[in-house]
Amino acid sequence: MKRKIVGYYFITYLLLAILLIFVLFPFAVMLSMSLKAPDEQFTSPPYLIPHRPNLENYFHVFGQGSMFARYFMNSLLVASGATFIVLGVAIFSSYGYARLLFPGRGFFLALILLSQLFPLAAIIVPLYRIMGATKLIDSYISLIIGYLTFSVPVGVWFLRGFFLSIPQELEEAAMIDGCSRFQAFIRIVVPLVRPGIGATAAYLFFITWQEFMFALTFITSESKRTLPVGIFDFVGQYETNWGNLMAASVLICIPVFVLFLFLQQQLVGGLTQGAVKG
């Protein structure tokens, strides 16, 4: 019996180890490359631990002539701006879809889902024309508006699931005690779905943080570029500055890691919580 349990654990940990190696190996290579000088990067045979580790690549990424710090701030601004606006819109509208009865509810809900089926490449040209006509091309606003097109539906759909998971009786009880529907919403329902809002916010931040195509198309000035586009500064026509590219990649991952660490509990709990009634 005992041997059976030991065997069970052994297999579990073995599989976990394989999975971890599979997931972490590319990151390890990235980190290793970012700490190596050019003459160590492509040796034969290759090795993971740098013989002369140094931070030269990181200094260069933030150094003179590099726009990386600027790109970083731009990404932060655009991703958090878009996330806040989406949450503001989606909290109310998803509550409406979850609770209020109005004609066409099912139809509009289906439409929201349908809008997710369009590939981004299909809506980018009309959006570009709209931005061009409204003189918004090459502005942060154009990116934020662009991101709303795909992130609002995601936000609404996610949050609706969370709202559905709150028993309606709680609101009714609050209203019997004298709350208006709005008060019941703000004081009872929203605090209860806070984990869900956190999870949705994190997800929205991730998808806007790494968005590439809109950022490439709408922004022209170097000073307004975001990270996923800006990172290509290190990729030349024939040659790539691998050390710098990998250092920049490591740095790009950091905010997402930090966010994950803080939100991990909510994210895992939140996503499954909404999923049941989704």
Binding site: Y128, R129, L216, T217, E222, V229, F232, V235
Partner: peptide, 18 residues
């Protein structure tokens, strides 16, 4: 306005077409 090589052609074509 400067662009990295891998994005440059797409940028030019989209802007010229628009």
């Amino acid at each position: 306005a400067v662009f990295p090589y891998s994005e440059y052609r797409d940028k030019l074509l989209v802007a010229a077409a628009a």
